[in-house]
Amino acid sequence: MLRGKAFKFGDDISTDLIVPGRLAHLRSNLPELAKHVLEDADPSFASRVRPGDVVVAGKNFGLGSSREHAPLVIKMAGVSAVLARSAARIFFRNAINQGLPVLICDTDRIAEGDELEVDLASGTIKDLTNGAALTFGKIPPVMLRILNEGGLIPYVQRYGNIKV
């Protein structure tokens, strides 16, 4: 069970807004890079986010470049899950590979600052602030196995192979 506060973002939050190209020189310095997470979308996010909090966005979250640093720094900021109406393909796969759940649901029903409770096993989200109960789209079994191992690297360490 994951629990945290909702940070709301709009539609089309690109990987350039999550980790801009101008910070490419920090990509081998992840703790520094993480201080800038989502900076171009919300400059105060990095300083306000607390472990367990949840990024709640509109459609096509994470579109754009394949930079895996995007889900990586979101995870490093302590975010426990990303909820979105839809997510871009590469971001979704990268997030799972980093062990960060991306859950597709009707995020219009969640407001900024709401307390959320996410149950990965049952596929449900409770908005404790407004009482809404949401369900999220199923994660394909192959990805669920990777997520359950904590990401693709732990998965490969354990199995030494990929199986579907």
Binding site: S66, R67, E68, I90, R93, N94, N97, Q98, G151, L152, I153, V156, I162
Partner: peptide, 8 residues
């Protein structure tokens, strides 16, 4: 794909 997928 991302860096990890390509590494694998």
């Amino acid at each position: 794909m991302g860096s990890t997928d390509v590494a694998v």
